[in-house]
Amino acid sequence: MKPKVAFFDFASCEGCQLAVLDLEEELLDLVNIVEIVNFREAISEKGEDYEIAFIEGSISSEHQIERIKKIRKQAKLLITIGACACTGNMQYLSNFFDFEEVKEYVYGDKAKYFDPVQSKPIDQIVNVDFQIPGCPIDKYEFLKVVKQVIAGGLPRIPNYPVCSECKMQGNECLLKKGILCLGPVTRAGCGAICCKNFKYCFGCRGLAPEFNIESFKDVLRSIGYKEKGIMAQFKIVNGKDIQLLQSGGK
């Protein structure tokens, strides 16, 4: 019996689901080991008897809260995919403003017709069994997690920072060139794809389980960045964790 799988999206660009569909070479083999019953980006059927749910996007309305709770009730395994669902991504920035002002900015005087809530990653609403981070996700990491789940093992993604992976690739260090790169505090698993292409890491895979933020801030100050700019860069994807850090939560 092939396990039944569903994909659902909340506030997101749906790029992570497209990343899954981008597994062109592997898709036929993939549907041989799982049965996809619900996947708006790919099929018209809408089966509700799924066992594994992949969730993309963050929660930003009362309606979505109801919907994710319903999915959690049905799914034996709920796996979030992408930065929006895992860390809250940039829409989490609304948490740093007065919410009434945010609503007015977005909806003007029509705000009363909507039911928005401050943007939240999925794990702040329901229990999440596993997270596949990234903006977008790495399709091969997604595939690896699926195979691990189907084979009955515990999925594993790297717990070390991007710097390790970046060095394994033999890349030149961007921080050494004075570029604000979040590699030393960000979870690896992306193959340091940005740094490899000479773009700084903006931390889309979330903070690594272990980091030394104070020492890292000193490094950034020593190459000319100011506290405000550093924190702004951190908050782009990791607003939730930075909020936790600032309140002494981590």
Partner: peptide
């Protein structure tokens, strides 16, 4: 002050420690 980033290990010509993974 160590960032625990692992860069020193990765660039070292004599470090040989490894981990195992099954796929």
């Amino acid at each position: 002050i160590c960032l625990m980033c692992g860069s020193c290990v990765m660039v070292c010509p004599t470090c040989y420690c490894f981990t195992m993974d099954e796929e």
